[in-house]
Design a protein around this nucleic acid. Structure first.
Lengths: 191, 191, 191, 191
DNA sequence: GATGAATGAGCGTTCATTCAT
DNA sequence: CATGAATGAACGCTCATTCAT
């Protein structure tokens, strides 16, 4: 097994276990077993469990960013781009429930708070697409004049909630419904 | 210290520690110390940690329900009632950040999932106001024809996100902004 | 409730709980509840749990001694007296399984060892009947010339084992079988 | 320390502490300390305390069975075989007092009851030698016509009692006395 | 005298991390 | 390098005992 393969196996195992059982439901020994490596080996790739959790998050964020950007054209109107991203996010969560569950575990934990606090200055990641989008929307007077953080909440908040409800089986999101949801979010954001 | 005082002290300590550090950042011994009681004493009031967590949640839910219902008039139009509740929720979260953090910890955990699943059949609690409200809104054709769960998400999702952002200091919610946010949520929900 | 009644209630409750669940299966609080007294009250009658356990044992021993002596005539032949006592012991164990279970718990525990060690000098209690009986048996040359302790083992050992087996339901002891067992024990002891 | 050595050290420490102080006088931490290992290490070899206790019992039973069978010839007369086994048991108990004390602790505890109940159907282990022996004895009309359980009691009960008395120092069993005791047991059992 | 709420030491067990092989 | 056995601090919880009422 090559070095990168091994790291990958560890990350995959950690993702799955943490997504399904939360942070305490994923002891290092269990991650190691699932990854097919020795328990000590994990520590060659990640200084400790915290680092593993944070790097896994960063990996995931990067992966999602790439997906969201597929077919994204900055020339299109704000509304269309908004719908593109929202739809992509929802589709991704539905197609990758483990990723979504992991992100939730992460955001709702001390890790998430620290992460957010770090973001406050140098914003990076998927939020930035929204940032750019909303900046343009504000300039063109097509979105409401609200703080960026609020616009983000109006656009993103409902998506998280429905994605969770879908994964837990409380609602079934098909393409039609996804479309309606994103439109409704746009209604909340648009001027 | 009277009997009820002691129970209260335990609940307060648990709330604070769990809100700030999550469930595993709040060992029973630490809760006991913060509450100023012996470790064993907690078990006179709560059968075990799970029970403590669930009762604390129920207490909180009850308290919030009472606040939300203050000044609520079922005769008023759907829109007005929607705004009343949304505003009350946001104000509560801002005024009681520990309560809000606790609710988040709870909802994003196995406890929360069980709780939600229980709700699906015999719905009870504060959500029911929304339920009733949206049912009427659907009957009067003033809200979008979407599954109840989705309407909840559109109405509630952004509130959670902005409340968290406020508590973390990413935005300052004043009365004016609260009003604008709730109105925007209504835009997302209304037909 | 009179003072002696209360003591009695405590002893009865302790006997039952310890007999059925062993020493750890009988917390002081549970004994108190079953006895219908406050937990602290037990400590007015018994200095601590060890004392309670030992006094309970002494009570039991006394009670059994009395029963064994019923209809016992020191003038009768050694063999007849042997059979009288053996039969009485077995009947008692069958009729009072809780007492028997308690005695077993006691003997097989640090308490029992201490108790036996205390006995080594000033022997007292039910064993003494045997002691006297065997002394006479030796003098009259009707029992084997073996150390007293060994005679005791030959006479008493099988009774304990069958009593336990009866209580656990592995054999049913009726009067006929009891007679055969005691006779067999006599065969072991007699010259 | 090799792997098997460590398991052995744990078993030895547990045997000694439990034999001397009973099950609750032998906390895992104390066993670990006596064995010269960390507390967590025990759990690499035994799933939990119950498993440790049961495996230790099984080890012991196996060891004793081997000793009892040394020089045992199934062709010899019933009486001779009875004496062989009885003598071997008594010698073993005297030579290995800790083993004997452990067995007593085990038999007089919930573990022992479960074990006995298991035996009642599919009998296995050292008792079976007696079983076979007594079956033959009954067929040849050399032992009394009593239930198997009672024959066991007559043969085995006194041995337990004298072994305990020897260990506690109430009697000194030399080879001559052992011979007399076993003969006396045979007197109890034989027709 | 009687009570039972309060205590905290001690239990069995888990798991992130280390380090000899 | 990779390993996984070993570690021990920390956890949730119990219960004999005390003491204010």
């Amino acid at each position: 097994m090559a070095k990168l393969e091994k790291r990958d196996e560890i990350v995959r195992a950690a993702l799955e276990l943490i997504a399904e059982n939360g942070f305490h439901g994923a002891p290092m020994a269990m991650i190691a077993e699932k990854a097919g490596v020795g328990a000590g080996t994990i520590y060659r790739y990640f200084e400790n469990k915290d680092v593993l959790i944070n790097e896994l998050y960063r990996d995931l964020e990067q992966r999602i960013y790439t997906v969201l950007m597929e077919g994204y054209s900055p020339e299109k109107p704000v509304r269309e781009r908004f719908i593109h991203i929202g739809t992509a996010i929802l589709r991704y969560c539905i197609a990758n429930p483990l990723d979504f569950r992991y992100l939730e575990q992460f955001h709702n934990s001390p890790y998430g708070v620290v992460h957010r606090r770090d973001r406050i200055l140098g914003e990076t990641g998927e939020k930035d697409i929204y940032l750019e989008l909303f900046k343009e929307g504000l300039a063109r007077h097509v979105v409401k004049e609200l703080p960026m953080v609020v616009l983000f909440a109006l656009a993103f908040g409902p998506l998280i909630t429905v994605a969770r409800d879908h994964i837990l089986g409380f609602v079934v999101l098909d393409e039609a419904l996804i479309g309606e949801i994103i439109t409704a979010c746009w209604d909340g954001v648009k001027r």
